[in-house]
Design a protein around this nucleic acid. Structure first.
Lengths: 217, 217
DNA sequence: CCTACCGATCGGTAGG
DNA sequence: CCTACCGATCGGTAGG
């Protein structure tokens, strides 16, 4: 019964609720909830059509409260995109590391990259990258430049794989254009893929590899 | 000097300016100018970020005047999309008819379709189709259904060509998925292609065909 | 097609 | 993080 006696010595939360200073404004999961809510609504309705009120309401906040966590709507959009890219890079690196022991040939490596890309793009909770892909117009050019840095980190592992396939005669287009065309093919799937019906992500990856990669000459 | 004498008998415009009734509200080129202006701004800034005031100002109109030609901003957006699809279908049919005499094989037919698609997507005055592709969220589901009708008209000539290539062993993925992946590849070019530098549309079409189509098995 | 205008919504802020 | 609020912008309309 110690929770009902001795006012100042409650044991439920040893020192009251955790203190939040201005400096730790960024941690905690309310911010993460806002990010997820924003990603969802930015994706479904677009940046301008999704109001900060919508986003706040979706996590049970009042209309002014998102601005306690983000200094503007644009900063919230950028945070969604950056979070999406960081997570995508991390997942890609894990996928590559997981397969490294098997010493996969270039074709198998491409399959790993493509499969992971579909996962990042279409898997559960995959609103962040589509927002980045389809709302780029709504960020500043400085933000775009920062994102381009992360994007080139993401694309880095693709180039040597495509070069190897090109050399082996299994890729019939010039590497730079091939990369753009392949990414387009994959990225566009965010427009039509429906998780609840049709092909699995494995089927998709198989079809894409079959389409792009030929037998060695 | 007959233009300065005889008030009621001017010869400049025989019967005064052409009468406009409510019924012919849709003809004339002011409406076309609005459509082009809207396509340009919807593409550059997105549907919600481009105001009807911007669109009107770009053709020298006042803020309320677009609503004389279109009953709402949404109707203007849909008109841009519909005009884009009708024009694309027409151009595709002309391109196919022009080549029909040469009795092209399936691979050459695909090359014609792809080349024309890049033209529609990236050529001069090509804002209409990108708007249709990237602002689909902003129209009603009824409008989307109407557009889907036109889109399937546009896609119709692609299927037999892809089927033939598949049968000939030159297309390694199932036709339905291949079509989606190929369109994605092409459509995404609207995001990165810069008319002023890099590859020509012919180069692009060559690279795409090379990437997708293999030698007969 | 212009003038003059309205109602609604929205991003953002002050102060607690 | 909430309450209460503001200024700006925007789509749209009446009336000519």
């Amino acid at each position: 019964m110690e929770t009902t006696v001795g006012g100042p010595t409650l044991t439920k939360r040893p020192r009251g609720r955790p203190r939040k200073t201005v400096l730790e404004r960024d941690d905690g999961n309310r911010r993460q909830e806002l990010l997820r809510s924003a990603a969802r609504l930015f994706r479904r309705k677009g940046f301008h059509a999704a109001s900060t009120r919508d986003i706040a309401a979706a996590v049970g906040m009042q209309s002014g409260s998102p601005f306690y966590h983000f200094k503007s709507k644009g900063a919230l959009l950028y945070a969604v995109m950056e979070e999406g890219m960081r997570s995508a890079i991390e997942r890609q690196q894990r996928a590559l590391a997981r397969a490294a022991a098997a010493a996969p040939d270039p074709c198998a490596q491409l399959r790993i990259l493509v499969r992971n890309h579909f996962d990042v793009l279409l898997g559960p909770g995959s609103d962040f990258i589509p927002v980045m892909l389809y709302e780029a117009r709504s960020i500043t050019s400085r933000q775009r430049a920062l994102l381009a840095e992360l994007q080139s980190q993401y694309e880095a592992p693709w180039s040597p794989v495509l070069e190897a396939l090109r050399t082996a005669g299994q890729l019939r287009a010039e590497v730079k254009l091939a990369r753009l065309l392949i990414f387009g093919s994959l990225n566009w799937s965010a427009q039509w893929y429906d998780r609840r019906k049709g092909a699995s992500l494995d089927n998709l990856a198989d079809a894409a590899i079959a389409l792009f990669i030929g037998d060695a000459a």
